[in-house]
Design a binder for these strands. Structure first.
Lengths: 217, 217
DNA sequence: ACGAATACGAAACCAACGGTTTCGTTTCTA
DNA sequence: TAGAAACGAAACCGTTGGTTTCGTATTCGT
């Protein structure tokens, strides 16, 4: 019962196509160009509705109306309501999550975890939770979520951990994947399940209990 | 747009009302009694559909048809499709989750965690994940989930941990809530996010890394 | 045994939703 | 200026969650 895909310019980025070196600029297509404003209005409206009502409670016509756009336009550029909300979420998160963290070793790791716990409890964090739970039954969206959010976040942590190992702060036998899960898992647990508050004190406790298990000495 | 509640015998248990000592048997109501068979057929069908298609993909009429029951009957006894699926889930889980665990101390805790990881990866566990994510936007259902699942599970772990403290295996300063979250959180993390496999080896690693932080000596 | 009370199934019904399509208009390139 | 492609407005369709009606079945109190 799903819509047939008409186009797949889902990842199109304006008129510029990013390629390797010795690139030819992609020729601008013939007709009327896509309205960048419409795109932004859609994503903005979608995010607003998402944070107001939750993933399953927003309607596609509702998004169109709030964005001042026709339903046809929506489905010209997105495959489904879910993907609109999904994109809307990340359009907004990317700047928030981009951290040019500097410093070195365990201090950075600790900062990272504390920031993560802050983010999860923020307004944006709860929107993210709605997205994560809202897409759970859709295999395709889950994979995209892993690529666009989870894996990126893990890569950052992995890099920090590997630095810490190189600096001799963490044992060379440290398994970065295990350490990441031990640090983030408990935060995630409280975040989604809500059985207890997720505050900075909790994040600190986790860090202070987990790190010694991997520390040199 | 939610249905008005007509009755609230949501927790009715046949005709017997459980009370304290010196109980009067509740008088049987006048008319035709509720069909216990219909109730069970509904929950059975709902669980089947839930495990086949996912929380959001099952329709109320579909449940009615599969159970051989009219839509009217469905909404005479449940407020919404969500509550049917919710009940269906727990009707099935309760016997599975009831563990008369014996033994003592850290061995029990370890067994508990390994069993938990087994459960989460089982068929029933993935159904549970669908329920947990499916109800996330509904405050009321989330509270019920906490009461009927989360808190019960935590209570079991808490008891084991307190035993371990009393036995001198764990430090008297051990915070049971923190320890529970450190053990279960990482499992939960992989369970719902699926960035890496949740197997017995992982559960063991978690246990072996976490426990020393709370152990005497 | 009979009437009140209540549950039941069948099926019609409704509003809302996700998604599609048509059509006339607008904005761009060649 | 012609062809290409996006646009908004709005009708349209099939399905869904949920309600209601109605005639039937089952049980209790008397």
């Amino acid at each position: 019962m799903l819509a047939k895909v008409k186009r797949n310019n889902y990842f199109r980025n304006g008129n510029v196509v990013i390629r390797g070196p010795k690139t030819k600029v992609a020729p601008r297509p013939r007709g009327r160009p896509r309205s960048e404003q419409a795109r932004q209005e859609v994503l903005k409206a979608a995010y607003k509705l998402l944070s107001d009502k939750g993933f399953n409670a927003v309607g596609s016509h509702e998004i169109a109306q709030a964005a001042g756009v026709s339903s046809a336009t929506l489905y010209r550029w997105w495959k489904s309501k879910e993907e609109i909300l999904f994109d809307a979420c990340f359009e907004r998160m990317n700047p928030i999550l981009a951290i040019p963290e500097t410093g070195s070793g365990l201090t950075r790791l600790r900062r990272y975890i504390l920031r993560a716990s802050e983010f999860l409890t923020s307004e944006e964090g709860t929107v993210m939770a709605r997205v994560l739970t809202g897409i759970h039954d859709d295999q395709r969206l889950r994979r995209m979520f892993l690529e666009r959010y989870v894996n990126q976040r893990r890569q950052i942590q992995r890099a920090i951990i590997e630095d810490s190992i190189a600096l001799g702060e963490l044992k060379p036998t440290t398994d970065p994947e295990l350490l990441i899960d031990m640090l983030s898992g408990p935060l995630f647990f409280r975040w989604l399940q809500g059985h207890a508050p997720l505050d900075k004190g909790f994040a600190k406790s986790i860090f202070d209990k987990v790190i010694p298990a991997f520390q040199t000495q």
